[in-house]
Amino acid sequence: MSMALENLKETRKQSITVGFLYERNRERLRMRCLNGETGFEKEIRDKNIHRPGLALAGYTELFTYDRVQVFGNTEIRYLQHLSLEERIRAFDRIFQFDVPCIIITNDNQIDDELIRIATERQVAILITPFETTKLVYFVGDFLDDQFSPQTVIHGSFIDVYGIGVVLVGRSGIGKSEVALDLVERGHRLVADDVVMITRKGEGILIGAGTDVVKHFMEIRGLGLIDIRSIFGIRSIRFQKRVEVVVELQEWSRDMEYTRTGLDHDNIAILGVEIPHVKLPIFPGKNITVIVEVIALDYLLKHYGYDAAKEFSKRLDAAIAEKSKGKRSVDYFEHDFE
């Protein structure tokens, strides 16, 4: 196996700042900040979200204060039914803990007094017109993505008939050339040379390029080319689920390659097992078409048809019937062509 897939370095963000959370979600969640940029440098270290109803009411045992605190209708309504003094006390109680930030949903109003306390404690109060369930869904998904394990693979990543295929192999073996050929045939490039892979949820790998490189590619002898400018928008994608790894290798007499496809070889990336096809290359072999077929074969398997197993079943039946080597058509129906 090439070093490209051995000991992949796994990284995971330890924290993001409140300012980063705000910047990245401001537009789509129509978020505003009620106290300037106070507390924007505070760090969020937990991907979960907390609704501090019980803490406001006085029960602060097991208060997961280090999470993003969301004030929904319940919290706001509870605060409103208190007198101003009690409200301030309830608020102060939360600020005894080092909370990263507060998000208020449904554009609910809170007292200027409470905003002042938050500013004193250097905690940002963000507000959104979204309802709590939607906000929790979006921010939860955002945080989940931010804190997901990531790795970088040296290879080309292409969407072939809707299947995410990563081509790997030693430097200079021709990954980019195969990717270019695939793009020429109407498939879509996600990234070349540097593929950032993120584990989403359990068992899903999503790959993307990097913001510097986007859809540039290096072709030896030609230099850098921009796939998007040359082939247009239909030739690229920004992200894609990773489904198959195809490893290009110089053909070697000592290596054993699968001949039936009955035994599937898998590879683990960030702990997720995906099919791994080792493809020996030699002159005259059309790698592009084989990669297309790998994608189509994966689709067939996905929909329940395994060619190798079907063939094997037919052979078993033929052996049982002792009908060896018969022609597939008994009689050619007056067809003399």
Partner: peptide, 24 residues
Amino acid sequence: AEFFIEKDGFEINGKSIIGVMTLA
């Protein structure tokens, strides 16, 4: 020999121009 460069927790192939430029 194979050659890898690591920066900010990410590792790229040092024989790839695009990889090296990604490091910025």
